[in-house]
């Protein structure tokens, strides 16, 4: 209970800090503009004559790729650069409580951005009769995937004091995870790695798990996949921060 309160205090501060600076607004506007542009202008939402959000969700992994690392790069890198990490970690809070508080704050922040795309649901309902179950499922999948991106971004941010490095590293890791099953990526490994390794890398990909959720299929394995990616990255963040030698 007390552990939860501690995490909650960290969570609240982190979430507030997004809105205390222009970060939140730039991020939200960027996210909405980019996902709107991709959906309407690139995949031609209206011309498709289909009342579903497939072209909308299709772009989410790519929009996240750019924007989630930007939203998470400061999580720990900024604390390390300014030295506030020394304050935070000498408070009666365990490291795990602090890590979880920050993770959920960043995840909720992204979720708020995703929630602000609701007009597109209303538009689709106005124009046709979409399957709302599929749409809900797509949102759940998208938010779970965002959680995985956030966790990767937080790990990258814990590794450095530079937000730029955190941004680039998390973008690269996310890109690798996104494209892991794609032939040009797997061919990087087929040359020298055994087949099981290539398959393992491909199995780590974000994309297939998101695609099935996007189609309205709730498979426990997909949910378990995203939760394990998050758990792994959170544990990684804990290890990295515990082993830092200074601020």
């Amino acid at each position: 209970m007390e552990g939860f309160q501690n995490s909650l205090s960290v969570f609240k501060r982190e979430l507030k800090s997004y809105f205390e600076s222009p970060v939140a607004y730039v991020f939200m506007v960027g996210f909405l503009l980019l996902s709107g542009f991709m959906t309407f202008s690139v995949t031609r939402f209206f011309e498709r004559q289909a009342a579903d959000l497939q072209p909308f969700f299709f772009w989410h992994p790519w929009v996240y790729l750019l924007l989630v690392p930007a939203a998470t790069m400061g999580l720990w890198a900024e604390e390390r650069r300014t030295g506030t990490i020394e304050l935070l970690l000498t408070m009666p809070v365990t490291l795990m409580q602090a890590v979880l508080g920050k993770f959920f704050a960043a995840w909720l922040f992204i979720t708020l951005g995703v929630a602000l795309t609701f007009p597109i649901v209303i538009t689709t309902c106005y124009l046709g009769n979409p399957d709302l179950g599929v749409i809900l499922c797509g949102y759940i999948g998208s938010i779970l995937m965002a959680g995985a991106y956030v966790a990767v971004g937080m790990l990258a941010s814990a590794m450095t004091r530079s937000q730029v490095i955190a941004f680039v590293v998390s973008l690269l890791i996310c890109l690798l995870l996104l494209l892991a099953g794609w032939p040009p990526v797997t061919s990087l490994f087929t040359q020298w790695a055994p087949a099981w390794f290539v398959e393992a890398v491909a199995a780590f990909s974000f994309s297939p798990h998101f695609e099935s959720l996007q189609r309205g299929v709730i498979d426990l394995r997909d949910i378990a996949y995203y939760i394990s990616v998050m758990a792994f990255m959170i544990a990684g963040t804990h290890v990295v921060l515990e082993n830092r030698s200074a601020a």
Partner: peptide
Amino acid sequence: LPENAPAYHSM
């Protein structure tokens, strides 16, 4: 009170 008195500047 850590060295250089760190604090969250946006608060």
